[in-house]
Simulated scan of single mutants.
Amino acid sequence: MLKPSYPIRTQRLILRPFTHDDLTGMNAIHSLPEVARYLYWEPRDPEQVRQSLEKKITQTALEEEGQALALAVELEATGELIGDGVLFWHSALHRSGEIGYIFHPGHGGKGYATEAAEALLELGFDGLDLHRITGRLDGRNHASARLLERLGMRREAHLVENEIVKGEWTDEVIYAILQREWRARH
C-alpha cells in the first residue's frame, strides 16, 4: 500500500494529487495533437478532459494491485501545471509496476519529465517496495525512449506491429529497471 505524503517536491517540481482547479491546465496539454500523437486517444475536447480529470482526482493512493496513482506536475516557481505522471501497481505477488507521463511540449528539453519520472520510480521502489518497474511507449516516440534510458531503464522488448492505434499498426517498446539497479544508481 502506498499513500504518499503530499506534496512531493523535487528540485524544481511539485507532484501532487489533481484537483478540479487543474481543468484549464490539463485541457491546455491534453487538447494538443502533438501530445496525443503517440497515445491511444486523439486530442481531447474539454468534456473529455473533464472526464479524465474526474478519474485522476480519485487516484491519490495505491491500496491494492491494479490501481494507478495519478499526480499533477507543476513548476514550483510558478505553480503552472506542465504535465502529469502515473504509477501503476500491476502485481503484489511479482512486485511489479509501470510509470507513465504526459508533458506540455512547451516545457520540453528542460529535464522536467525526467525529474518527475525519477520521482515516480522512487515512489514505486521506496514507497511500494516494487521489484521491477516498466515503461511502455510507441516505437516512434524516440524522445520518450531517451528519457527512459536516462533513468537507467533498459530496452527489453520491441514488439513489431502489435497494436492498431488510431487505425494504423504500431510498434511498442518496453523498458524496465529493477529495484537493485535503481538503488545502485542512487
Rank of each mutant, 00 (worst) to 15 (best):
I57W: 12
V173T: 00
Q179G: 04
Y101C: 03
L159S: 07
D129L: 13
I57A: 11
L32N: 04
R9L: 04
G83D: 04
P33V: 10
V160P: 01
H20N: 11
G25F: 03
I174A: 13
R12P: 11
Y101L: 02
A92H: 15
R16W: 01
G127W: 15
V173A: 07
E80I: 02
F88T: 03
P43H: 12
W41N: 09
L137K: 00
V86S: 11
E80V: 03
N162K: 07
Q67Y: 07
K166S: 15
E47G: 08
L32A: 02
L13V: 12
L151I: 06
A184I: 00
H186L: 00
A72P: 01
L75D: 14
G139Y: 15
A28E: 14
N162C: 15
L75W: 11
A68I: 06
N27C: 12
T114F: 13
G25Q: 13
P7R: 14
H186S: 00
A92Y: 11
Y38W: 01
R132M: 05
G25Y: 15
A176K: 01
R154P: 08
P4C: 14
A68T: 05
R16F: 05
T134H: 10
V160D: 15
V35S: 10
H158M: 07
V49Y: 04
I177H: 02
G85N: 06
H30R: 07
E42Y: 07
E115F: 13
L81T: 02
G139D: 15
S91C: 10
R132I: 03
I99R: 05
P105S: 09
S91G: 08
V49G: 08
T170N: 02
N162L: 15
E64F: 15
A68L: 09
